[in-house]
Design a protein around this nucleic acid. Structure first.
Lengths: 199, 199
DNA sequence: CGCGGGTTTGATGATGCTCAAGCCCGGTGG
DNA sequence: CCACCGGGCTTGAGCATCATCAAACCCGCG
């Protein structure tokens, strides 16, 4: 079965056909640069040490990017989901050392592309380059703000803040992962939830 | 009595005669630019709103620079002492809004100079300009580090850290002020002290 | 001597971590 | 079909840290 079989989510084709204004031929050319990569829940897409020559567009599903801290504790950095890019290069953008893992939280469909092909595409489709660059700078600023929040806000404030700004993720992401993301113990998060629910 | 009567501390003359290499005539010229300003304990040198056309070299004594936060609480930013410069301009270098007070903690002897005279002196004595600039950049970096510490370290860690890095100030500065500087309640600081003394 | 500011002490409460146990629920094998 | 298992969430008990409100203490100075 061809690649199209998997691309049920309209985002990707939408993106290229409308946002970037490709005609059918160009679209096919572009598609041929990608390869579908399916991940089962808990599969690792990236593990530290292994150098990957690819990045991938998340077409479906949701993952977690995490690192292991000094004490061997997992620290979740973000939750890539539809319309994110995942790659080794995350370590570059996050300023973290290259010891990051990326693991599927749900069954995922990634559209993988080699660095060479991506460069080539960027070259042919200037809008793609801009769009990607914008995505990355946005991610960098959100990450910076998150680090700032971790320093300045109390656990409870961080939880309430996330609840207001990203309520969606509570629908998909297990609490234990959200706890790690907020740097709160799962038990404490559970208690905050209960306590704040009393209104 | 002339200005010399007050300049008992060798630092100031040392500074100009040796570090900046002035001869006697030049030294006298330089001296004539300054005016001694004596402060009694608790006197305010700077209060917010009042625009000052001067800055002052702290020849003797020690002061506190503080601001009032949203809740009307005093927050001490630093403790200018011998060989510091104090001025309105602190607000500029600290990045704080211009709502800072500077108050004498001990009786102080300041050597005050108008902005015009200082510019003139800087012009005549290039080394002075460099020296002053260096002082200010150092202050900026220490302040930045302090802000970072306030965010990342626990109250206890901040206390221990200060104890190691600036033990001198515990000899001159009342505990309540140190507490404010560390953003700790005086009672808590007192208890930490007691507890850590048990070793 | 007594006053007053600075420091200490006491009691209490909030927050969030840790260790431990319990609960709930979906999947699996018998 | 049901009993069991395991993972994820919740709950319980205890503890450390610090803030807050209050009171006591200490000491130099008028």
């Amino acid at each position: 079965m061809g690649i199209e079989a998997h691309i049920v989510d309209p985002k990707f084709t939408e993106l290229f056909k409308h946002t970037f204004g490709l005609n059918e031929d160009e679209y096919q050319m572009m598609l041929s640069c990608f390869e579908v990569k399916l991940l089962n829940k808990k599969d690792l897409y990236i593990k530290p040490g292994v150098v990957s020559r690819h990045k991938a567009y998340v077409n479906k599903g949701c993952l977690r990017t995490y690192a292991i801290d000094e004490k061997g504790h997992e620290r979740i950095l973000f939750f890539p989901m539809e319309d994110w890019w995942v790659a080794d290069i995350d370590s570059y953008y996050s300023g973290q050392s290259a010891t990051n893992y990326i693991q599927a939280i749900e069954d995922c469909e990634l559209l993988e592309i080699s660095k060479e092909n991506f460069l080539m595409l960027e070259d042919k489709i200037p809008k793609l380059k801009q769009w990607y660059a914008l995505k990355m700078t946005r991610r960098a600023t959100t990450t910076a703000r998150r680090i700032e929040e971790l320093k300045t806000m109390s656990p409870r404030e961080r939880y309430i803040n996330l609840l207001q700004k990203n309520p969606e993720i509570f629908q998909r992401i297990p609490l234990q992962y959200i706890a790690s993301y907020l740097n709160i113990e799962p038990q404490s998060l559970s208690r905050m939830r209960k306590q704040l629910a009393k209104r």
